[in-house]
Amino acid sequence: MSSETATMTVANAPSHRASRLDRFLMQGGIVITFLVVAVVATALIEPRFLNRLNLLNVMRNFALLLIPSLAQMLVMTAGGFDLSVGAVVAATSVVTAAVMLVGNGYFPGMELAVIIASLVIALGVGALVGLVNAGLVSAFSLSPFMVTLAMMSVLMGIALYFTQGIPIYGVTDSFVANVGRGQFLGLPIVLWAALGVLAACIVMQRFTALGRHIYAVGSDQRSARLSGVATGRTLIAAYMLAGLLAALTGYLMTSRLGSGQSTIGGTLALETIAAAVIGGVSLRGGVGRAELVALAALFLSVIANAMNLVQVDSRYQTLVLGAVLIIALAIERLLLRKRQS
């Protein structure tokens, strides 16, 4: 008798439970559909897409979008936003090149040490930025959007002030050859790096307490705190990890470009938010999975490549990116409207 009442409650509340459509959408139905359509359409319209060299190129671009997109995802699932991700990439690119320039001057012949030192210093800068962002957001409960917008301005200012907008050359050659252009098992090193980061994110999200706490803080900060989650520390972890990933992106981009540039990363905030949102990361926090963000980043990379192949003006590519972002969100909103309470 008593067990019947309980099960009855469940059966009587079908509207509370996810419908099949909801499930499909939540488990990445949109992304997978988008990706398949984009790949097939591109391959049909432009067979050169399947060319090995082109695919390698797609992979490299994908890798360099995936890493900062995962950074964005971490912050967004924790209920924030990171508009400073592009600025961190630019700043750490400058830092990487500067360290190499200086390091190679003082310690000629110690290339490997300099390459590693520049990575460590770049990562340190990224982590510091994340710490400051998180500190301001959690200690003063400021809007993450405003904080990272201001941080973006600060970082861009610093990067531009030190370089005056001029690229820093003098990046170690072997760094460019082995990291930027290097391959392992036929795939670019940067792709391996990105896949490593992706795997780490997946494990972190699913199998660690930190991952769970990030979701909890993003979903409902008050409840998380009352449940004993150290919300401040969780936010710091999320923003610092994001900073580290953005810094890694800056480092790897430097290896591809062969110089430190203060002007890269301009549209990265948009691109990473687009990848995260298309990958199903909720703008309200608490929802988002790394593997789907990866699919979304791949989708965006394929589209960008397709536009390059059919020689669309690069300026129109931002237009398409903006449109794709808005359309994806509109579709999500319209399909899931009923779920919103």
């Binding site: 300026r315 990116l321 969100l329």
Partner: peptide, 21 residues
């Protein structure tokens, strides 16, 4: 439609920029 204003206007910003340039 109810899309987040931040993301909407961020996307719009890039579309408008593309037209302007």
């Amino acid at each position: 439609i109810g899309i987040n204003p931040l993301v909407t206007t961020l996307g719009m910003a890039n579309m408008v920029l593309a037209f302007a340039s």
